[in-house]
């Protein structure tokens, strides 16, 4: 039975369903921030007072709590609040959780899930607007998910909690309220991209929030006779390279969109991967659409200039067509 949910509702539904199925699943922190959606937590708190806990303001300690609890047999879902705060937990995630399985020769398992609300949120100024996924993308041993729709959030959150690996769900502050169908309550496999729109002329690869301006750009371009395919990787690590390469093999043109600063972004990483492995499919230079390498300004007018939009994405698509 299809349900209609916001991304916030889908996330809470996934956690609630996982907690109902497994008594070792617990929620440490509130994944819905301080906005109105936080009230969705009330049902969970009442249902599982021993397993839904509010830790102190200490991101490193909370991340380590999750690592130790996961190693000890629990399946903790640890919320790190605003994306920028996860920097305080960098060592625990990157240098404890992500490496323990490898350095124990596969003996230690770390089934912890981290979640954060990252990205340019509107008025966040530099310290509350960081896109952190690119920095964590370099951590070997860490699964990273970036759901863009309620159905993907439900399904990927279920897979994250069920995974025996440390998994980081990159939520976006602007996506919490986005609504859509959840056709069925079922896990979405980790490592599998989704083609959000099929097309023949140009491939756009866009991640989490950027999927939506990419789709808007595709609709606008369709009116001009340009048929765009939009690929949503959904999982950033491990990346579904085959789906991206196969789309580029069909279209011969690639635009990659990421809200993170360009240097070291997912856009740069995917562009490099395709340049190396899909070079002979390409009919035009790859276009990367990302934030300039600068902190995020507070002033609304300046902030708006930094982030990719449907217009800047559409312009990049046209560049791939004009250079052929």
């Amino acid at each position: 039975m299809s349900e209609h949910m916001s991304i916030a509702q889908a996330l809470i539904a996934a956690i609630a369903d996982a907690m109902a199925e497994d008594p070792m699943v617990c929620l440490l922190g509130s994944p819905l921030g301080l906005g109105p959606q936080r009230m969705l937590m009330n049902g969970l708190r009442e249902a599982h007072p021993d397993r839904v806990l509010d830790p102190p303001t200490c991101e490193a300690g909370n991340a380590a709590l999750g690592v130790g609890a996961a190693m000890g047999g629990a399946r903790p879902f640890v919320d790190l609040s605003t994306g920028s705060f996860s920097f305080l937990a960098f060592s625990q995630i990157v240098n404890e959780a992500a490496v323990a399985h490898y350095m124990s020769n596969g003996k230690v398992r770390v089934p912890v899930t981290y979640h954060t609300l990252e990205g340019v949120r509107g008025g966040g100024a530099p310290q509350h607007s960081q896109n952190v996924h690119a920095l964590f993308w370099n951590a070997s041993g860490l699964e990273m998910l970036a759901p863009a729709t309620p159905a993907d959030m439900y399904g990927l959150a279920r897979s994250a909690i069920a995974s025996d690996n440390p998994t980081f769900i990159m939520g976006h502050a602007k996506l919490l309220g986005l609504e859509g169908p959840v056709p069925e309550r079922k896990a979405v496999p980790i490592g599998k991209a989704d083609i959000k729109r099929r097309g023949r002329d140009v491939t756009i690869v866009a991640i989490h929030l950027m999927v939506h301006p990419a789709l808007a750009a595709a609709e606008a371009l369709a009116k001009e006779g340009i048929d765009v395919e939009v690929v949503d990787p959904r999982t950033l690590a491990p990346l579904d390279e085959a789906t991206i390469l196969s789309s580029v093999a069909k279209t011969g043109r690639l635009v990659v969109v990421d809200e993170a600063p360009l240097q070291g972004s997912i856009a740069s990483g995917i562009a490099g991967m395709v340049a190396e492995r899909g070079f002979h499919s390409l009919k035009a230079p790859i276009q990367r659409v990302a934030r300039p390498d600068a902190p995020v300004a507070f002033a609304a007018g300046l902030e708006a200039l930094l982030v990719p939009t449907a217009e800047t994405i559409a312009a990049a698509v046209k560049r791939t067509l004009s250079t052929s």
Binding site: R51, A60, G68, G72, P76, E96
Partner: peptide
Amino acid sequence: FLSTSGIVGGSISMGSGGAFARKMK
């Protein structure tokens, strides 16, 4: 043994997590 960390503070910080899992049991 849950994990053996060479990062100073690693053992004590994950220790609370290990104890949390014990409490859940």
